[in-house]
């Protein structure tokens, strides 16, 4: 029995990095073949990034959890379509997560914005079952912060608004008071510079 209980806590995630690494790629491929055990092992690698991203975008813990649940179930459902030659597992999962979070925030914009301040003020003391390595997270965050610091102010603002606030590029343009074409190119230029600074490997 005791052994069971030890196992009930998900395995620590060796190699859990910002990109999930080859472990996530391999596991997602196994999940795509209907392997439920592989999904169990993939979960701790992807749940933290999915939830963190969802929370950044929707700004409401309950909504973020709902979005995360939909995404993670969708990871299982869609896994047979994952193609490693077209990108990493983590990018595949987080693309789905971002799309879903953005769709939700646009749909529930009024509600979400109204509850934003309140939600941010709620101390979160939920029990956690995915161990997020704080040091590693801090390190990743520092790298990203450093890379973001290398952007122009306009590039950085455009990316922040588009990615973390879920704005369309029209909204980005309007908030930043720049022409639409400028918003588009700043988002692209900025991302390309981030890609190069972070040393993102083409897959």
């Amino acid at each position: 029995m005791d052994d069971d209980r030890l196992h009930a806590v998900p395995d620590a995630a060796p190699g859990a990095s910002a990109t999930g690494g080859p472990a996530a790629d391999l596991l997602l491929a196994q999940v795509g073949r209907g392997d439920g055990a592989a999904f169990d092992r993939l979960y701790p690698l992807v749940a933290g990034p999915v939830y963190g991203l969802a929370l950044r975008v929707v700004r409401n813990p309950a909504l973020a959890e709902e979005v995360s649940q939909e995404v993670l179930v969708d990871v299982w459902r869609q896994a047979p379509r994952f193609d490693r030659t077209r990108g990493s597992a983590m990018a595949w999962v987080l693309t789905m997560a971002h799309r879903r979070a953005v769709d939700r925030v646009r749909r529930e914009e009024t509600l979400a914005r109204a509850t934003r301040a309140a939600a941010l003020a709620v101390p979160d003391e939920e029990p956690r079952d995915v161990v997020v390595d704080e040091a590693e997270r801090t390190w990743d965050a520092a790298r990203v912060r450093h890379a973001m610091a290398g952007l122009t102010g306009l590039q950085r603002d455009a990316i922040e608004l588009a990615f973390f606030s879920g704005y369309t590029h029209q909204q980005v343009a309007s908030v930043l008071g720049v022409p639409l074409g400028t918003a588009k190119t700043r988002i692209r230029d900025g991302l390309i510079r981030l890609r190069d600074t972070l040393g993102v490997e083409p897959s």
Partner: peptide, 21 residues
């Protein structure tokens, strides 16, 4: 660029509520 965006997201990761799993 999607891989790059995933890195941004990865740096924002947070432990989700236990009940989610």
């Amino acid at each position: 660029l999607r891989e790059t965006a995933a890195r941004l997201a990865g740096a924002a990761r947070l432990a989700p509520p236990a009940a989610l799993r």
